[in-house]
């Protein structure tokens, strides 16, 4: 698996896609730092990057990468190695290269701006970890969708739809439900509902770690309490890990049954 991972990773980080993706982060992060002139503001500005852009790019890239490497996968299938090894190796190569882009692209500008001595190091790490988890979750979902759909157009459409679902539709239904049931106590239900969307989960988690927490006021007290406690952090982390592992496990199961 390590060998597959290694060569997929080398292949990917040499690709123009990944190079431009890294360059984009690099430029965008420097831009945010210069425009905000303030590390904590720049970190919070990264929130949109993490909750919208990373899922979108990971989704699109995950689908394209799978379809583009189908023939390569066939070649690997002719080698004396197990399927789980091939798919896990390839998938991890993909995730690793996307994470590499993201981490390198934002880490260098922040280090240059002195994040390590700014007192916001922990916040920055939260954002970094959230970005990595988003990358894993959405490239896994995309990879799985591509694996299940031989029709590329259909696979691509479904992947974009998945992104839309988590990035927009889920919140839309969420807000409508809140308005519909406004007379009921909603904080517990909202808290639970936020666990079922990795984007909402990381968005809320990060906002609560920043000044924006004050905007939540007393109505968001339950969220404060939950995400402020060790149990809450562990549970939120656990929920995100479930989001990472479940698609990967399905990838492994499905890839074992698939004909190429």
């Amino acid at each position: 698996m390590n060998k597959i991972l290694k060569y997929s990773f080398i292949d990917l980080i040499r690709s123009n896609w990944v190079i431009s993706y890294t360059a984009f982060y690099f430029v965008a992060t420097f831009g945010l730092l210069v425009a905000n002139g303030d590390i904590s503001k720049a970190i919070i500005s990264l929130l949109h990057v993490i909750t919208i852009l990373i899922p979108l790019i990971s989704t699109v890239f995950g689908v394209i990468y799978f379809y583009n490497s189908r023939d390569y996968i066939e070649m690997l299938l002719a080698q004396p190695i197990r399927r789980s090894t091939i798919f896990l190796g390839q998938f991890l190569g993909l995730v690793l290269s996307l994470c590499f882009s993201f981490v390198v692209g934002i880490l260098i500008p922040f280090l240059v701006y002195g994040v390590s001595v700014s007192g916001y190091l922990l916040h920055f790490l939260y954002v970094l970890v959230a970005g990595i988890l988003m990358t894993i979750i959405f490239s896994a979902l995309a990879y799985l969708i591509a694996l299940l759909n031989d029709n590329r157009l259909r696979g691509f459409g479904l992947a974009i739809l998945t992104w839309l679902l988590f990035a927009i539709l889920y919140d839309g239904i969420f807000v409508l439900a809140m308005i519909k049931f406004e007379e009921y106590p909603l904080d517990k239900v909202s808290l639970i509902a936020s666990l079922f969307n990795p984007i909402d989960l990381s968005r809320i988690f990060i906002m609560l770690k920043f000044d924006t927490a004050a905007l939540f006021g007393y109505t968001g007290a339950l969220f404060h309490q939950f995400f402020g406690s060790n149990l809450g952090v562990v549970l939120a982390g656990f929920a995100l890990l479930v989001w990472c592992f479940v698609p990967v496990l399905i990838i492994l199961a499905k890839s074992n049954q698939k004909d190429f």
Binding site: H48, T51, M178, I179, E182, D200, L215, T219
Partner: peptide
Amino acid sequence: YIVERVPISIIMLRSLFIEMI
């Protein structure tokens, strides 16, 4: 306006859906 009506909806702050509506 929504937040005034349903205060808990503040947790949707910075959601893409919110920016769109």
